[in-house]
């Protein structure tokens, strides 16, 4: 095993078991200034994405011959693009596409990576060695590069993009989950459980997992924001969502020829990405503060 940790591991916070009388986790996140702003931003984006899902507003694919590259107006709130398509509808659908890839990829990475990390940390031995080596190898690839090569190998489509991003982020979850397990494994309550003859699965799921979930939760928020950036970047390069389907990265790529005259073609999709990334980072900060009682406001 190499000894350096990935930058992501800087997000690791100590496991903090919830004590009686403390407010619930969502309350504590909302009580944190950053957490609250983050939840509001992401909540707003989620609502917009849902609105596009139930086809509230205009059709993102419909081309209006009369109004190409028209500025924001009553008919088209955020203007139209070079084919006269409604930008508001396309941004909303793009947000949905981004969130879908981000959620699916991070869910896969969290479940697979988290489970592998917890198991290998808890079991040690051969499993730990094999998982450790695999993690090292995957860490040897810069994230963008690995995602790109995987998308090229798997082919286009949102699910393939999600799988590629999941593979990139799985090793991060392995390490984030494994670290605290090594400590928790030796803690008195786990030892006591062993002495009492609890089964391995009971020890693992009832005693170890709840106490290592804090760093994993923080990592989920951060990974979601990277996943959104990666998806947008892949689409921008023409390797993610394919036209005419709306995607935030693709919209920015298309706007290149019309900016700064038709500024709305670039501003709104770019803003959606930035809001998503800032919101998720703030939620990550809020989670970290809420989960770590020792966090001092710096």
């Amino acid at each position: 095993m190499t000894q350096e940790m990935p930058p992501a591991a800087a997000a690791v916070v100590p496991a903090a078991p919830r004590t009686a009388g403390q407010p619930s986790l969502p309350r504590r996140i909302l009580a944190d200034r950053n957490g609250l702003i983050g939840v509001v931003l992401i909540g707003a984006l989620a609502l917009i994405a849902l609105a596009s899902l139930v086809h509230l507003g205009q059709d993102p694919l419909a081309q209006h011959q009369s109004g190409q590259l028209a500025g924001p107006s009553g008919a088209h709130w955020l203007g139209t693009d070079q084919f006269g398509r409604d930008i508001a509808a396309r941004v909303a659908a793009g947000i949905f596409a981004s969130l879908r890839v981000a959620l699916v990829s991070v869910a896969l990475a969290t479940v697979i990576g988290g489970l592998l990390g917890v198991l290998s940390g808890f079991a040690g031995g051969i499993l730990d060695a094999v998982v450790g080596r695999l993690t090292d190898v995957l860490f040897a690839f810069p994230a963008t590069l690995l995602a790109l090569a995987l998308v090229a190998a798997l082919g286009h489509g949102w699910f393939n993009t999600a799988v590629a991003i999941a593979v990139v982020y799985t090793p991060i979850f392995v390490r984030v989950a494994r670290g605290p397990v090594l400590t928790v494994r030796e803690s008195e309550y786990v030892r006591a459980g062993r002495v009492l003859g609890f089964s391995r699965s009971r020890l693992l799921f009832r005693h170890v997992l709840p106490n290592v979930s804090a760093p994993i939760a923080v990592q989920v928020a951060l990974a979601l924001s990277w996943a959104i950036l990666t998806e947008a970047g892949l689409s921008f390069l023409g390797l993610g969502t394919q036209p005419p389907n709306p995607s935030l990265g693709l919209m920015v790529a298309d706007s290149r020829n019309f900016f700064p005259d038709a500024w709305w073609t670039l501003l709104f999709p770019a803003l959606a990405v930035v809001v998503a990334v800032v919101g998720l980072n703030l939620i990550g900060d809020g989670l970290r503060n809420a989960l770590d009682p020792r966090t001092v406001r710096r």
Partner: peptide, 22 residues
Amino acid sequence: GLLGLALPEFVVATVTVAWLAS
């Protein structure tokens, strides 16, 4: 700083190229 991290490279690059051109 947070904005610098959140601004995707492709947006900054696109804006820079378009701005230089115009």
